[in-house]
Design a protein around this nucleic acid. Structure first.
Lengths: 169, 169
DNA sequence: CCATACAGGACCAAATTGGTACGATTTGGA
DNA sequence: TCCAAATCGTACCAATTTGGTCCTGTATGG
């Protein structure tokens, strides 16, 4: 558990496929073929990703999708946000007022911290790293830990991490 | 999204209630009252927590539950594991063979890393910290970041973080 | 021996999620 | 000009998951 939605996993796969050739347009059909996922589902994902402005769509014949930012600047956290909405491990970790005993509960701030730490782990991985041909855990620098400072979170994007592929076809 | 189950949130609340007085026994009914949650649900949770050996049960009249380890040594990650099972952001991040294109997919190892980072964030928070009366983010040392080393993960338990309370009653 | 309390399932209802379908709109090219 | 290729948006259905309840059994203290 504490799993992310299957669609999110799919989304990273699709995004990676686009990132492989950032310059050119990719139709939903093409991406579905390449990632071995149902076309309808891929199409739905692309719409979500476009709405989040991670990719941009060109309509009409010969149209398709293209990244709006460089693969280096798009992270897994971006994809998760686009598909699942803002990360929130607990209902109160973002929205206030969802909890009846809020006033007597000092825990809100701390869930927020856990939330931040998780977000950072996801934000430390870029599409470029995912797309890089089979970089492995052991291959990485291993010298840039994801550091989590309770007060002011410090971001450090240097962990090499890719996405899963769903059981497809 | 990327949310954990409501039951997990409940579980942390219940565990905190027990941790407040680790020495004595707490019946399911008492804990339900204290946490403002339905007794049946609390009972179910306690069974799960007991099966995971985070708490131990004493049967019969005057029976109840008690922590099996100190509040300092029980973390949020333990609770999550007990209620939701092992943390796995993607299906392939733990079990191999769930994915058809596994052999051609170099991303598995990297999801594992994200998974580890998240686990560490959860493991950095103990029941004792949650139970501590309203410790706030600003109050903490702020000098012991949760550090994530790709190769060999280094644990650092010094982040102060509590749990939410569900909208109950 | 009975009231209290946990053990362990079976079970159901509701919410969420994955996935599909369809009509509308835009665009390039024959 | 008209058609085909694409996306847009939304509504919808089916399946899984989740939250929650209940019931029967077992242990224990008074």
């Amino acid at each position: 558990m504490l799993k992310l939605a299957k669609l999110t996993d799919y989304a990273t796969v699709v995004m990676t496929a686009i990132a492989a050739e950032p310059a050119q347009l990719h139709s939903a059909q093409e991406l579905a073929d390449r990632s071995h996922l149902p076309a309808a589902t891929v199409s739905k994902l692309l719409k979500m990703l476009a709405k989040a402005r991670l990719i941009e769509a060109t309509r009409g014949a010969q149209g398709g999708y293209r990244l709006m930012r460089s693969p280096e600047s798009i992270t897994v956290a971006d994809v998760v946000d686009a598909v699942e909405g803002p990360i929130a491990v607990t209902s109160c970790s973002i929205h206030a007022g969802d909890c009846s005993i809020e006033s007597s509960c000092g825990t809100r701030a701390n869930w927020r911290l856990i939330n931040e730490a998780i977000r950072q782990a996801l934000a430390a991985v870029t599409l470029a790293q995912i797309a890089a041909p089979m970089r492995r855990a052991g291959t990485m620098p291993a010298e840039n830990p994801i550091t989590f400072h309770p007060r002011k979170a410090k971001r450090n994007s240097d962990a090499p991490i890719p996405a899963t592929r769903p059981a497809a076809d």
